[in-house]
Design a protein around this nucleic acid. Sequence first.
DNA 1: TAAATTATAGGATGATTGTCCTATAATCCA
DNA 2: TGGATTATAGGACAATCATCCTATAATTTA
Lengths: 195, 195
Amino acid sequence: MGSKGEALRQRIVVAADNLFYQQGYENTSFSDIADVVGISRGNFYYHFKSKDEILNAVIDARIAGIEMMLDEWDKKLKDPRQRLYYYIDMPLRNQEEIRLHGCPTGSLCTELAKANRAMLDDANKMFTVFHDWLVVQLNLLGINKNVKKIAMHFIARVQGIAIVTNAFEDKDFLQQEVKQLKKWLDDEVLKSGHS
Amino acid sequence: MGSKGEALRQRIVVAADNLFYQQGYENTSFSDIADVVGISRGNFYYHFKSKDEILNAVIDARIAGIEMMLDEWDKKLKDPRQRLYYYIDMPLRNQEEIRLHGCPTGSLCTELAKANRAMLDDANKMFTVFHDWLVVQLNLLGINKNVKKIAMHFIARVQGIAIVTNAFEDKDFLQQEVKQLKKWLDDEVLKSGHS
DNA sequence: TAAATTATAGGATGATTGTCCTATAATCCA
DNA sequence: TGGATTATAGGACAATCATCCTATAATTTA
């Protein structure tokens, strides 16, 4: 099968991914993407027949990216507590992007809930990947009660940080909240601690 | 000055407000608004010369609405703790809207950060109104240390709840998180309690 | 090499966008 | 009552949008 076409398809998805993150989905046109990739609109349409189709490809790519990232975390960090710290530090590592564009997952879901509700169920799977991974780490930490709720709470906390950081373009708030969230995790571990 | 024109202007702002909340700002056209109000695009343009102008009017109306709402809360509830509970319960009272469209303030800021960054500083003032009110209530509660940070934390928590509720269309999560946030407030009061 | 398939370009299309213009209708003021 | 202002309608405008079509170019396959 076409290896050259496949490579270009990949480049289109990456460009669309970035543009959707930076400008929003509705606010990004086929021409915008084609311009960034450096191809014609006609060629673009050969690879993606509709805007829904490229949105789907972007979501799939993001989900695959998150899964790969978490696999790497698991390999790099053996201690579940360290892994959760690393998760909490994620907004810190991406400070500047979050200040400018918010959380890629949260902002896309927020937009799709308004502009393309049919795809919301695909988009929120990005959250689910994180959620399921969090559940595993919490279990490894010896926390067995309400693990799903705690994992969801985790996600919501990070989302809140991202929104406020983005709205006020305030990285100081982000830094301080990340510290606080780590303390909250420590407390949570203590509360459920038996060992 | 034109009282009839002023009344229509008001109706336009209300319609635009709702549409921006339900469909997003970028995804709402002049025609959409004109259709809802039942006027022609030409007439619409007589009252608002540009899309930025109506966005500005919507933001101003929202800020005024929030200020009025908080004034009523202050009149209705004399105890600052009760007021803060009432703030926390706000997503609960608007469950269905948040499930469908998220938080009006948060989702607008998220969108404008991508699509119309120049207006982000106007939009985040909606948060500031809540923030300043929260600071007052916390002070009344006898909390004087890091009040601004706590108020901002408050806002971020509610935002996180709204995002996840909206992304998963899950009101159960909202209800459980609201309970938890009240507990957190109680703890915060206890920690700073002197009286 | 020749035929078939895949990939790319670029223009055409009709719908929609924000914006603007002009012609009336309604209202107000003197 | 009559002129001036305010309000409303409806169409014109160029730009942009997602989509589609056709003509080649590149590549693969037989």
